[in-house]
C-alpha cells in the first residue's frame, strides 16, 4: 500500500515526507515499543499513539519506513526532527488507533496474523 492510500483511508495528513517512494507490505498497531520491535518486519507501517521520539527510533531499528500517529495527537518537534534525520515518514490521523487500524484493514493492509499464546509462569 502506498502512503497516499494510507492518507486517504485514515484521513491523515503527511507531517514528514519520505525520502523515497514507499510500498508498505503490512502494518502493526501498538503503543508498546517492545511489541513493535518483536512484531515488525521491514516495509511495515507502525500505527501508534505514542508521539515521543522513541516511536521514530523504534521504527528506524525495525526498518519500518513510516509511522502513522493516531487520535489527532500532534507529535512534538523533536519527534519530527528525528524522523526527518532518520528518513522515516510521519503521518497524523484524527481517528483512534482502533478505527485507524480498521480503516487500513478495510483498505487492504494486513498484519502478521496469529501468534502463539504465551503463558506466564508464576
Amino acid at each position: 500500500m502506498k502512503l497516499d492510500e494510507v492518507l486517504e483511508a485514515t484521513e491523515a495528513e503527511m507531517l514528514v515526507k519520505p525520502p523515497y517512494n514507499i510500498d508498505l507490505e503490512s502494518a502493526c498497531a501498538s503503543d508498546l515499543m517492545s511489541d513493535v520491535l518483536l512484531f515488525t518486519k521491514p516495509s511495515m507501517l507502525l500505527v501508534t499513539g505514542l508521539t515521543n521520539p522513541q516511536a521514530i527510533r523504534t521504527a528506524d531499528m525495525a526498518e519500518s519506513p513510516a509511522v502513522l500517529f493516531v487520535r489527532g495527537k500532534y507529535p512534538p518537534p523533536e519527534t519530527l526532527e528525528l524522523a526527518e534525520e532518520m528518513g522515516v515518514a510521519v503521518m497524523l490521523s484524527p481517528y483512534t488507533m482502533f478505527e485507524a487500524a480498521g480503516l487500513l484493514y478495510v483498505a487492504g493492509l494486513r498484519g502478521i496474523g496469529k501468534l502463539p499464546i504465551m503463558r506466564q509462569q508464576r
Partner: peptide, 15 residues
C-alpha cells in the same frame, strides 16, 4: 507511558 516497560525486553533480545 513512554511505551516501554512491557516486560518484553529480554524476550525480544533472546529472539
Amino acid at each position: 507511558e513512554m511505551g516501554f516497560g512491557a516486560g518484553m525486553g529480554l524476550t525480544n533480545i533472546e529472539r
